[in-house]
Design a protein around this nucleic acid. Structure first.
Lengths: 361, 361
DNA sequence: CGCCCGACCCGAAACGTTTTGATTGACGCA
DNA sequence: TGCGTCAATCAAAACGTTTCGGGTCGGGCG
């Protein structure tokens, strides 16, 4: 409708208008300016749908977020907030799909891909063997992941070095004199959980200290509370605890306070994410910050590069996290410094993912 | 491509395939089954882009979220999480646009609307005179708002009765014997801020109690902290404080603890939203819950109804909030119960929105 | 003078649907 | 037999772009 409108009102063909506006060199500059002027006059906006039909591209990027109330958290929120504007600047829309985990999630990906709804995808919270990544790789759809996964095939990803981050956090706690450092982790299906656990374990091994107990569950406040309570109920509770996310740390803080203990003195706690709230917990939370804005920017760059035909092979980066020291950790309480080593119970894996079970450390 | 593929492989016309699949009655049932079978065999998926071009609908609905770090909060998160799957069930996509406030926000709306990118919109956090709503009304684009606005024209909206909610909360505090009840509000451009303030004021008026001071700023943890600190620095600080959101309440809690006071005993605090964290603050936060899931469901219904041609006029509802009593409030401290009344200072409005200034109560 | 080339422009096809209006037979009825 | 009716099918147009493969016209060159 619209191209034609300009064309008829100027007495040229639709082709010429299209080519003029697209900047092709084979249109006389006089014509071009007339067309440009008219386009501006009627405030011409190309119809994206027509354009997409013709070009076979949809002009949108998909982001599938977990729809379960617990798991859809501030990290995704920040990601959306950062990614959206960047994509918009590239003329791309961000479409969101909520999907409850498992089969429905796979279906969501299939839906987006097969209906030509998206040109590319952003995949967050990668898992060890990630079916989504396999699907996308098989179909040749461009994507970028936040987080790594275990596959031999090359794919674009950007990740924070969780291993290094937790190694650093553990070393900090060791430096405070803690001898029993526990880990409140996410289920080991998630790669980030594995990396952070590895860092914790590596630092302890390097120091010759036996790892404290490691529990895991979906990283929510509720589970942080539950798991921390379980830790405190032990005969020989740890003096320091690493939490895989701030959300978990908030729950843990609550458990500590409920037990009549004081975080930062009786028990040291370190989180991860640096959510806005971390500044305002009591005490403020020592945590590890990932630069979400910049990550989002880089991920979008990687995705756009692939849309323009770049191979995914070179596109992978791992960035450092930054430790933000606040007041939820500190010197180990003197009474218990370097007391006897406790050995974590080696327990069989639980049946379903969400259960909080003891890791083999 | 695809319709044609079925057509040629079955020796019928594209039209017939289309009509068979669409369920028109004028195709022989034998033909219909053959077509259905073939469609299933090749796993036919209609090309949405083509469909949209033909129908003039885009099959997506838009949600513009504030992209400023502070204002993009958990409420939107919950909204997105709830709305996405519901829309998906209707065959609709949810496209998100982040937009920093002001001019950019208007541009974002214009972009979505004029490029035919969305069939409808969801508008959250309504303002008193909301330019977005005017734009949408003028263009005749279907939309649903979360929150009300001051316009004579009918539009579809669903809101929580913030006035009733804060009246109830204030009455609760009065019942606890508090005589100085302050309000930590959001800027009065937001309708929700006005409603909640009205409820607070109404309850106090009914009880013959003078309103405590009312401060306002963007509802973030940081501002909650700042404003609460300001309250505590007064000669005659209030014994109870209503916070317009849980985020603010979290900041306020921090300010209270920093001042060496104990929330729930020295100072009573009530929030709003019932974020997941409200259960895990210290003390757990008494707050008002809005049923986001159900609201999302209803808003989607309202939107879909309009897409199917229903007028917006009848579509508006105001639901009650539910008070969740936890432990951040309680009886007024005996030493100060019904002490002399303080009169809020009547100060002129500040220059820019984000400043924390004293309301004329 | 005749030809060729470059500059400029355009018609038509294509992307995959849906929908309109027409066509084809078969059948019943007068 | 002739006509109307009904069921079943289809061709073509349309949605708004982009792009392919020409086409026309003038001017420069041999």
């Amino acid at each position: 409708m619209s191209l034609r409108r300009i064309a008829t009102s100027l007495g040229v063909s639709v082709t010429t208008v299209s080519r003029a506006l697209a900047g092709y060199p084979d249109v006389a500059s006089a014509t071009r300016t007339r067309i440009a002027a008219e386009a501006r006059r009627i405030d011409y906006r190309p119809n994206q749908v027509a354009r997409r039909l013709r070009s076979g591209r949809s002009g949108t990027i998909g982001l599938v977020v977990p729809a379960e109330p617990g798991s859809f958290d501030l990290f995704f929120l920040a990601l959306i907030g950062a990614i959206g504007p960047l994509l918009a600047r590239q003329g791309l829309d961000l479409v969101m799909m909520g999907a409850p985990g498992g089969a429905a999630e796979a279906a969501a990906y299939r839906h987006l891909v097969e209906q030509h709804r998206v040109d590319g995808l952003i995949v967050a919270r990668t898992r060890r063997h990630d079916a989504r990544i396999r699907l996308l790789l098989d179909r040749g759809i461009p994507f970028v992941t936040h987080g790594r996964t275990e596959t031999a095939r090359p794919y674009a990803h950007l990740d924070i070095d969780g291993e290094q981050a937790f190694r650093e956090a553990t070393e900090r706690l060791l430096g405070f004199g803690h001898a029993q450092i526990a880990l409140l982790n996410a289920p080991p299906v998630y790669m980030f959980a594995r990396h952070r656990a590895a860092g914790w374990r590596a630092a302890l091994a390097a120091a010759g200290t036996a790892p404290g107990p490691a529990l895991h569950a979906e990283p929510t406040e509720e589970n942080g509370d539950r798991l921390m309570s379980a830790l405190l109920a032990r005969r020989d509770p740890p003096t320091a605890v690493l939490c895989v996310t701030d959300r978990m740390a908030v729950g843990a803080l609550h458990a500590i306070a409920s037990a009549g203990l004081r975080a930062g003195r009786d028990i040291s706690l370190i989180g991860y994410d640096d959510l806005p709230i971390a500044r305002y917990t009591d005490p403020p939370l020592t945590t590890l910050e990932q630069p979400i804005e910049q990550m989002a920017r880089r991920m979008v760059e990687m995705l756009v590069a692939q849309l323009d035909g770049a191979p995914a092979a070179g596109l992978n980066e791992v960035w450092p996290a930054r430790l933000i020291a606040r007041r939820s950790d500190g010197p180990a309480p003197p009474a218990r410094t370097s007391t006897l080593r406790i050995t974590p119970r080696a327990t069989a894996k639980g049946g379903h993912e969400d259960a909080s079970i003891v890791d083999r450390a």
